[in-house]
Simulated scan of single mutants.
Amino acid sequence: MIEIAIFSDIHGNLPALKVVVKDIEQRGIDQMYCLGDLVDFAPWGNEVIECIRDLKIPCLLGNHDERLAFNNPIIPIPHHDAEETMQRTKAINHSKDTITEANKKWMSQLPYTIELRYKIKDTFRKVLLVHASTRSNDEYIHVGHDSKDLEGMLTLSGADVIVMGHTHIAYQKEILLGGNDKRLLLNDGSVGRSREADRLASYAILRISEQGITAEIVKLEYPVQEVADAIFKSDIPDFYGNFLLNGNVTV
């Protein structure tokens, strides 16, 4: 059996990343992949990038990474109110000012997708890693997304599994394309800025065997108060520390 660990959306939260990596290592899983969004909203953007680099973890270019790497403009998100739009702008500008040029250059060279092919006896299994969707690194694909569109993405990609992040909400969804052709859509949630009520760090494990492909979503506690306090002491708006502490808020 082949085991793969996949995580994403760290958003500068180094303590949460350390907890996730330690758990993966303790499970003896050698293959780790990151789906991007290393930066913004917590104070350790450079340290997170350097951790991923030092561990040589293959990583995708998330939409937040792309904005910093290429100095793209900050475009407001339609579902954010004026207050959050202002706080988001301050937080992203903080990253633009503090992420080193060397780390920006490294992010600028990250791929948008990673395709993995494994041979199990006489059968090939294809796993496609994306940040948000097969079309874009900033499209939101929630669990209730249009089924026909999901079927189309899986058919066009030829993947047995598409793994994504971006929404900060973990889920797995089986898609039946016809007959016994079952495919899997998997969201690994978020390491450092979960939008789920429990605010736990999450990642996904894929297990590939002769019997097929299964997925597990792992959730872990990390020192949230420590992270929030570090945000409060930094120039990042307190909004993002309060977000982590207030699990009943689903921004």
Rank of each mutant, 00 (worst) to 15 (best):
L184D: 06
I213T: 13
G165C: 08
I208D: 04
G179W: 15
Q225F: 09
D181F: 08
A215Y: 12
Y222P: 14
K233V: 07
S194Y: 05
G192N: 06
G189I: 08
R199C: 04
R199Y: 09
G212C: 10
K233T: 11
Y203G: 03
E174G: 02
L177G: 00
L185M: 09
D198V: 03
D229L: 00
S209Y: 09
G152K: 03
A230E: 14
D188H: 03
E216P: 04
E151L: 03
E226D: 13
E221K: 05
A197M: 06
I208E: 04
I205G: 09
M153C: 07
I205C: 07
I213R: 02
E174Q: 07
E221D: 14
K219C: 09
G189C: 03
L186C: 10
N180Y: 14
L150I: 15
Y171M: 05
A159V: 01
G158C: 04
R193N: 15
G179P: 15
E210M: 00
G178C: 07
I169K: 05
G158Y: 10
A204L: 05
T167F: 13
L220A: 03
I205E: 09
K182L: 14
Y171G: 08
H166L: 03
H168A: 04
T167D: 04
G192A: 05
D198Y: 07
Q172E: 15
A204T: 09
Y171R: 02
A201R: 00
G179C: 13
M153A: 07
L200M: 12
K182H: 14
G178H: 04
L220F: 02
V224W: 01
A201T: 12
R207W: 10
A228E: 14
I208A: 03
D229F: 01
G212E: 14
V227E: 11
H168C: 10
G165I: 00
T214I: 11
A230N: 12
D188G: 04
I175Q: 05
Y171V: 01
K219A: 08
V161H: 03
V163N: 01
G189R: 00
E216S: 06
V218Q: 05
E226I: 08
A204S: 13
V218N: 01
L206V: 13
L220T: 06
A215S: 14
D160C: 04
F232H: 08
D198T: 07
S194P: 11
Q211F: 11
P223V: 12
D181E: 13
V218E: 08
D160E: 12
P223T: 12
S209C: 03
S157N: 07
K182T: 15
T167N: 06
N180W: 14
G212I: 13
A215C: 11
M153H: 11
R183E: 06
V218L: 06
D160R: 02
N187I: 10
L177D: 00
T214K: 01
Q211Y: 09
S202T: 15
L184Q: 03
K219M: 07
T167Q: 05
V161K: 00
T155G: 00
Q225S: 05
M164Q: 14
K219I: 06
S194R: 00
L176V: 10
M153V: 00
L154C: 06
E174F: 06
S202V: 08
L184E: 06
K173I: 10
L184T: 11
T155P: 00
I217N: 08
H168Q: 07
M164H: 15
Q225P: 02
R195F: 15
I231H: 05
E196S: 04
